[in-house]
Amino acid sequence: MADIVNLKRFRKRKAREAAARQAEENRVRFGRTKAQKQRDAAEAEEAQRRLDRLRRDPAQPDAVRDERDAGADQA
């Protein structure tokens, strides 16, 4: 005779195994070490600084920008 199988336990075990597989895939796909995150942040910051240095029209103070805009409206 065949063994009697409790379907509720079987479903729960199958769900746990599927969740474990999904968790493992997520760890591989999205997991990064603290050093990797810090390196990426440093690279992004350096890229932003490089863009700021190469900017043709450096950021102007708001007061100067507002005066120019007011003059353009009157003309």
Rank of each mutant, 00 (worst) to 15 (best):
A42R: 07
R29P: 04
D69Y: 08
V28C: 05
R39S: 03
E43A: 09
R9W: 03
E25G: 03
K14T: 13
A75E: 08
R21M: 03
P58W: 00
R11F: 15
R21N: 04
R53Y: 10
R9L: 11
K8N: 15
V64E: 05
Q22P: 02
L51I: 08
Q60N: 04
A41G: 07
A63W: 07
A63E: 09
Q60T: 04
A18I: 03
R9I: 09
A41W: 02
D73N: 04
Q22S: 11
K12W: 12
A75R: 07
R9Y: 05
Q38M: 02
Q36P: 00
R29C: 05
R49P: 00
R16W: 10
A15Y: 03
A44C: 08
R39K: 04
R53W: 10
N26V: 04
V28M: 07
R9F: 05
D66L: 13
D69F: 10
R13Y: 06
A72K: 07
P61W: 00
D73A: 11
R53S: 13
R68I: 06
T33V: 01
D66C: 08
A19S: 06
R21S: 04
D3L: 12
A2G: 09
K14R: 14
A2C: 08
R56S: 12
M1H: 07
K34G: 13
E24F: 03
E45H: 11
D66N: 12
A63I: 06
R21F: 02
L51N: 09
